[in-house]
């Protein structure tokens, strides 16, 4: 069965290489770095195929997320699966971070 990520050979539109030459933002590079660090030889917390399995778990939602948001979600799910942190810890952290970021945003 073809998964949502399995594009090979399907009809698609023009490549438009000039339009789609995006320089990664610092935020995207940070997500990239987190993924590379959990893969690296010192940590070996996950492998590339595991990251793909997580991204494919989006199912039809795969297309709704920007590339690095899929990566971020994959890192988060992998760390939960491997008990690096728990869902409770992540939930509590997100409540705290949300308050902080929203306060920063409102100051601007």
């Amino acid at each position: 069965m073809r998964g949502p990520q399995d594009y090979g050979g399907l009809p698609a539109g023009p490549i438009n290489p000039v339009k789609h030459e995006h320089v990664p933002t610092h935020w995207e590079k940070t997500v990239d770095a987190l993924m590379m660090l959990i893969f690296d030889q010192r940590r070996q917390l996950a492998r590339v195929d595991e990251s793909r399995r997580m991204q494919e778990a989006f199912g039809e939602d795969y297309h709704k997320y920007p590339y690095y948001e899929r990566w971020l979600q994959a890192v988060s799910w992998l760390m939960l699966e491997k008990s690096v942190f728990t869902q409770e810890e992540l939930d509590a952290k997100q409540v705290e971070v949300r308050a902080r970021l929203e306060a920063e945003r409102d100051e601007k």
């Binding site: 933002t25 935020w27 940070t30 971020l72 992540l90 952290k93 997100q94 949300r98 970021l101 929203e102």
Partner: peptide
């Protein structure tokens, strides 16, 4: 300007990074 993603994505990234 270096663009930021949605606030939801920023919250998740900051949370995962700080927990790690």
């Amino acid at each position: 300007e270096d663009e930021l993603p949605s606030i939801e994505a920023q919250i998740l990234e900051t949370s995962v990074r700080e927990l790690l």
